[in-house]
Amino acid sequence: VFVDDHLLEKVLELNAKGEKRLIKTWSRRSTIVPEMVGHTIAVYNGKQHVPVYITENMVGHKLGEFAP
């Protein structure tokens, strides 16, 4: 499973602090992992960042699938 390192670091850091804030990313190719559930990730679609709230059903899919 591929997840960009910088994105995973941000998610794990927020989980350690117990925070839930918006994470901006250009990494549409990253796979959604269970650690991301409950976070809102702003995924770049080529024009703007689209906020995507991550749920359990999204695990295993790519971030780009949810930012048309």
Rank of each mutant, 00 (worst) to 15 (best):
V1C: 15
F2R: 05
F2D: 12
D4E: 08
D4K: 00
D4W: 01
D4A: 03
D4L: 00
D5Y: 15
H6E: 14
L7K: 00
E9G: 12
E9T: 15
E9Q: 14
V11I: 14
V11R: 00
V11Y: 01
L12M: 13
L12S: 06
E13C: 14
E13L: 08
L14M: 12
L14E: 02
L14N: 04
N15R: 03
N15Q: 04
N15Y: 01
A16V: 07
K17T: 12
G18Y: 03
G18M: 08
E19S: 08
K20G: 03
K20T: 07
R21F: 08
L22M: 12
I23Q: 02
I23L: 08
K24L: 11
K24I: 12
K24E: 09
W26M: 08
W26G: 13
S27C: 15
S27E: 06
S27T: 04
S27F: 06
S27H: 04
S27V: 07
R28L: 05
R28Y: 07
R28D: 05
R29N: 09
S30C: 06
T31K: 05
I32W: 00
I32G: 00
I32A: 04
I32S: 00
V33E: 02
V33W: 04
V33D: 02
P34S: 10
P34V: 13
M36C: 03
M36A: 02
M36N: 00
M36E: 00
V37W: 05
V37D: 04
H39V: 03
H39Q: 03
H39P: 00
H39C: 03
H39N: 02
T40N: 09
T40K: 09
I41D: 00
I41F: 06
A42V: 05
A42I: 03
A42C: 05
V43M: 03
V43W: 02
N45F: 09
G46W: 12
G46C: 15
K47N: 10
K47F: 12
K47S: 12
K47G: 10
Q48T: 13
Q48E: 14
H49S: 05
V50I: 14
P51A: 12
P51D: 09
P51Q: 09
P51C: 10
V52W: 03
V52C: 13
V52S: 03
I54H: 00
I54T: 02
I54R: 00
I54E: 00
T55P: 01
T55Y: 12
T55K: 12
E56W: 12
N57S: 13
N57M: 10
N57R: 09
M58V: 05
M58Y: 10
M58S: 06
M58G: 02
M58H: 13
V59D: 02
V59Q: 11
G60N: 15
H61Y: 12
L63R: 00
L63M: 07
G64S: 06
E65A: 11
E65H: 14
F66S: 03
F66A: 04
